[in-house]
Amino acid sequence: MNHDAYDDNYIRSILNNVKSIAMVGASPVNVRPSYFAFKYLAQRGYDMIPVNPGHVGKELMGKPFVASLADIDRPIDMIDIFRNSSHIMPVVEEALKLSPPPKVIWMQLGARDDAAAEKAEAAGLKVVMNRCPKIEYGRLSSEISWMGVNSRTLSSKRAPIPTQGMRLSLNRTSFSGGQTAASDRAAKNKTETT
């Protein structure tokens, strides 16, 4: 898997197939990116579980916080990790001990740990790094186009009427294949120039 540039179909298949998502590092503070993403994904119909030992006893969008992945009482399809790159490996190791293990490890924008990714992929999991599922969902459904964002998709079909909480169709034609994203070039340039 090329973790510098994902094919849209790879991201699309993950977002279409997972049903339950444990968000490690979810915050109840409503200006944190994890809060935004949690709320958005819950409204799109995903079964969201907030994981944060600092907030056990509280709820996020009506879902009780759990202290660790091991405390979740049902199988989890995807782990969305809202932690710095240096805290990824222990989460992945914990995820691989679950029975059944999750299908997908997703690391948030800015987070990347290639060794942890390799370990998860060796165990048959799919891995996404340095992306936000809210942004990717919004992009592939074109909902994010309301913000002037280049969705890198085209469609000549009438869009479903976008009401709150409804799952928009991800079934649009991508035109980048993830190959040309300026952000990917930026990530590359950054390591060259800093």
Binding site: S142, S145, N150, S151, L154, S155, S156, K157, R158, A159, P160, I161, P162, F175
Partner: peptide, 13 residues
Amino acid sequence: TLAVHAGAQPDPT
């Protein structure tokens, strides 16, 4: 193709 199509999907309503 992009000049004609990018950003424009038939109106949902």
